[in-house]
Design a protein around this nucleic acid. Sequence first.
RNA 1: GCCGUUGUAGCUCAGUGGUAGAGCACUUCCUUGGUAAGGAAGAGGUCGUGAGUUCAAUCCUCAUCAACGGCUCCA
Length: 645
Amino acid sequence: MSEVKITLPDGSSRNYPAGVTGMDIAKSISEGLERVALSIEVGGEIWDLSRPINKDAPIRIFTWNDKGGKYTFWHSSAHVFAEALEALYPGVKFGIGPPIENGFYYDVDLGDKEFGEDDLAKVEAKMVELARKNSLFLRKDVSKAAALDFFKKKGDPYKVELLQDLTDGSITFYEQGNFTDLCRGPHIPNTGFIKAVKLLNVAGAYWRGDEKNKMLTRVYGITFPKQKELEEYLHMLEEAKKRDHRKLGKELELFAFSEKVGMGLPLWLPKGTVLRERLEQFMRKAQIKAGYDPVVTPHIGSKALYVTSGHYEKYGKDSFQPIHTPDEGEEFLLKPMNCPHHCEIYKVKPRSYKDLPIRLAEFGTVYRYEQSGELHGLTRVRGFTQDDAHIFCRPDQVKEEFVKVIDLVLHVFNSLGFENYTAQVSLRDPADKKKYIGEDALWDRAEREIQEAADERHLKTVAVKGEAAFYGPKLDFMVKDALGRNWQLGTIQVDYQLPERFELEYVGSDNQKHRPVMIHRAPFGSLERFIAVLIEHCAGNFPIWLSPEQVAVLPISERFNQYAGQVIQELKNQDIRGYLDDRDEKIGRKIRDAEVKKVPYMLIVGEKEVAENRVAVRKHGAGDQGSVGLDDFVKQFLKEFSMPV
RNA sequence: GCCGUUGUAGCUCAGUGGUAGAGCACUUCCUUGGUAAGGAAGAGGUCGUGAGUUCAAUCCUCAUCAACGGCUCCA
């Protein structure tokens, strides 16, 4: 009998009889592993533990502690969900049901049946009941004809459609209990592993992600091998909600929305404005240092400007509609981006190759008519301010300039403690080129330059097709919010198209006219979105140089209000932001209120402090720090908490 | 824009087919208190908006607006 050589993750290898299964291997390693094994990675593919292995391969056994194990677990859970749903609502049609980062979903067509939150509990109960049966997941190879026949008979048009695209010979079914699904696998050994089930919510989702298709019902759920883990997960979700920037924005009085002003149009309250202006100052300084020239351009521009840029053709009908004037036929658009304005600044005079690069920076407020359902707190709004800049440079300067921008973005992220970002290279969708303008050769060049620049700074990048802007590829810096949703913050884009459309030129050393290249870039992305993600990251406990209120001065009683007034005045003289709480309340109360407002420092003043010109320092979340002279406090504070450079 | 859920005081939320309630916040008074809520009184709501059913609607029906969870989109 032949043998196969199995290499374990630690590099050691063992021989097993051909046809050995993952379960056999797990058992041979330890009984404990056999009990918790969920799936096995064989030569880079994830398999069922029951599938025979017939050739030499490196393997890795997945348990609940591995991402791969969780995916298998949740994939199988999606099947149990489908089984439960079919048991309760016969005739339901199924779309797809994949595992996701946290749990799984299944797209289903329930016909005319309305499926709401009430139904979730019923299905959950049924899932638990079915899981307890310990049904095995059975893999079956089927011919395409047989598979089509099965789903046609069952009346499941979505599966039939999916099957059309599959090649005969590669099709497998999985069966557990009374449910059979078209599925590539893999699955956990049996349903018994699933002990805790929570169906989280119901949503609509277009079949195959296409707006023109029918909308199916998508049910999101998550399962665990232990009830306790489910409880911990739900608790974690609750905690994450406490950091939601919309909740904290209201509680800390940073920003607000008004139905009367209009949806997606944030109102910045005094405290939020301090935060925002601090960030602006920080960026202005960094940009001056990096050789940018600040400019200011108007909030509207004539329609012709956007016709030239190509934005009108692409977004015109889906935008805020043109502003008309008393003059017949005169139309202006609310500025949806700053680039065309900056192009016109470039054009105010002839440019020499010696002038380049020219870096024009503007905190430009723009307005975009986002679809109503897409608005989301401060992360997706209809009026927002970009920390925008456009670099006009020679083709030979593109990479160097791009790398400098990467450095600026990383400086910003480091200064604000964003460590977990993803650098995403956003490319064209090669299958849908009509969505983009410009020649292939220029696109290829731009895409190559971006990748090279990212490599030069050793960024770990993820390339995603179809995410490019319509005029060029991008390097996007993605950061997650409290609930794990990804948002694009910083973005850098190489653009050969707009210089073409605006006929931008410079005179080269050869005395000939040449076309510059444009780099669009915004390290924050937008102040609104950046602040939203910042709030969620620090849970409202901002870096002190950003805090709207850095210090609260709290007199023990009214008798010390005068001294407290002197203290707050001295702080203000030194550009330290703070407030005096001279309410007729006990000190415990004033402290509690300052703690709830997340004020980083509290200075408590009473009899002892007045006598010696001192302050009793209390730190947010850390309690009493003892007393120091006011001057020393100020000196130390300024030293420690000034704006990073 | 699409699917689902929600909308009651400044905030968090109860509640009922017979024109509304709590806690916190707010105002006034008492209290002058040393490191996370002192006490009392008071004021505050067209029950998102519009229509319909009803003797009567905050509650039932429909429409509409907004928010929330997704889908699609994101210059």
